[in-house]
Design a binder for these strands. Sequence first.
DNA 1: CCTAAATCTACACCCAACGTCAGGTTTAGG
DNA 2: CCTAAACCTGACGTTGGGTGTAGATTTAGG
Lengths: 129, 129
Amino acid sequence: MSSLMQIGELSERANVSHRTIHYYERLGLLRPAEREGAGYRYYDDTALKRLEKIAALKRLGLNLDEIAAVLDLYFVDATGIKGKEKVLEILQAQLAKADTHLHELTAFKRDLEDNIARMEKLIAQAQQG
Amino acid sequence: MSSLMQIGELSERANVSHRTIHYYERLGLLRPAEREGAGYRYYDDTALKRLEKIAALKRLGLNLDEIAAVLDLYFVDATGIKGKEKVLEILQAQLAKADTHLHELTAFKRDLEDNIARMEKLIAQAQQG
DNA sequence: CCTAAATCTACACCCAACGTCAGGTTTAGG
DNA sequence: CCTAAACCTGACGTTGGGTGTAGATTTAGG
């Protein structure tokens, strides 16, 4: 029953422009579930999930080529144990990257908080004294 | 005694090109400790530290403008209460961004872990059955 | 003193990742 | 059936973050 949507709805739900979707399609990141005679694109919900995954991977610092290389892993069920092991490997690499990123970000946040506290103190002192 | 170095040495030590250093200088991210008559740039070790900080902030997803806005916080004390309030504002904005980013990243990580668990299970089943 | 290596400025160019615009086509709803 | 809203393609423009190159100047070492 999961009905199809047009590019407008998809772009709104995924928070990207329709030109971006066209662009991603040209790069092979995403394609419509259906394209009837006239040329309108129709998408199902996996398209939305792909776009969300793309955004997440971008935030990890991958460029679109790199994303194209791994994106299918999240959606295609690799067949055969060989395929599954490959997928597992890549997922674990991504996890390691995400972990590192998370640590750096946490440290940065702590740093920011320290600086904020320092600044607030300095401002309070300037106002008091 | 910390002697000065020329741009060539700095670029090598910081692992960026000298063109990039020129570029950063134009953006106000970095300037030579000294520039004698003829125009050669001479840098001290803080330049190296700045370049390293820039790289770190880039990995966190800040662009060069945003980096310019916060970089000095790590190296100079803003003078005057006006300056301090400005700094505070920027820091708080960065903190909010970092926080959002952190949450997204955490969700992404959980997602990865789920996928990994799923894959491991499938592989185990394939080997058993 | 002379020369090779390092540096200087200025302008042009590059790539990724889109955005804008124009002109034509399609579709849904009244 | 008609029209506005949505969509299409293709070409060109833009922004961020640099890189390349040319021609001149400077510096250090022999």
